[in-house]
Every structure is written in structure tokens, then in C-alpha cells.
């Protein structure tokens, strides 16, 4: 499966997989680089031969912020950047831990839950074995 399909672009493919409970990222068959967000051509080498692979799901927090929101409007929530083991970074949130215990370096693992608008979204939880 390459990035230049006749039917769907890589954004739609990613979303369809996520809706089925599958979190996959792209891997370039030209240079071997992993790619996220989903793209038509590899930003490392320019190849259009991108396939889909399942990441290990393990990652490390690179940066985090806590958005402060009044309790009556839903309360505080965290927003993080996670570096996946495959070498790509993504925005996400971390569930299952107090916001102020999230810090750069925290080891996390991915699962699929609901995003802000009820859509399927990749979220992370602390790796209990590691922390």
C-alpha cells in the first residue's frame, strides 16, 4: 500500500484505521524512516512508497502543558508532545495520572480513547512497569 492510492489519502486511511481501533503510522519503504503525521511523500527522502506499520505504542513525554479551565467548564486538562520509539512525535494527552505528575521523560504507552469532540484519538497512559 503506497501513499498515492486511487481511493483515499493518508489522512483518511489513518482515520479509518483509528475508527476500527487500530493505531498505525507510516514507514517509508525507500529510506526506512517512520512518518507521522500521515503524508503522501516521505519528508526524509521524498519517496511516495509509504506503508503502514503498528508502532510499539511506547513513548516518552517531550513536553507538557496543563490547560487551566474552570471546574464548571470541565476542569483542567493536559496536552503533551510524545516521542514514540519509532522516532516520530505526536500531540496527545496522558490519562491515568495527576496532571502535575506528568513531566518530560515520563514513559508512556498508547491506547485509543475519545478525543475532545468524541472522535477516536490516540492517548497515553504511564507505563506502570517503568515508573
Amino acid at each position: 500500500m503506497t501513499g498515492m492510492q486511487k481511493d483515499q489519502g493518508p489522512d483518511a486511511v489513518f482515520a479509518a484505521k483509528l475508527a476500527e481501533g487500530v493505531f498505525e503510522i507510516q514507514k517509508c519503504n525507500g529510506c526506512g524512516a517512520h512518518v507521522f503525521h500521515p503524508r503522501v511523500i516521505c519528508p526524509a527522502c521524498g519517496s511516495a512508497d509509504l506503508g503502514w506499520v503498528a508502532p510499539t505504542g511506547r513513548g516518552t513525554i517531550y513536553a507538557r502543558t496543563i490547560v487551566r479551565r474552570k471546574p464548571e467548564r470541565g476542569g483542567d486538562y493536559n496536552v503533551v508532545l510524545v516521542d514514540l520509539e519509532e522516532g516520530v512525535r505526536m500531540m496527545a494527552r496522558v490519562d491515568g495520572i495527576a496532571h502535575d505528575e506528568i513531566a518530560a521523560g515520563l514513559q508512556v504507552s498508547a491506547s485509543i480513547a475519545e478525543g475532545a469532540n468524541g472522535e477516536p484519538a490516540v492517548v497515553f497512559r504511564p507505563e506502570r512497569g517503568a515508573s
Binding site: 489522512d11 507521522f36 503525521h37 502543558t65 490547560v67 486538562y77 496536552v79 505526536m90 500531540m91 496527545a92 494527552r93 478525543g115 475532545a116 469532540n117 472522535e119 484519538a121
Partner: peptide, 10 residues
Amino acid sequence: PTYEAPYKPL
């Protein structure tokens, strides 16, 4: 952005 919207950054 598409890949940030689910997490509602300000």
C-alpha cells in the same frame, strides 16, 4: 490542526 484538535490545545 487535524492531529492536534482531539487534545484541545489553546
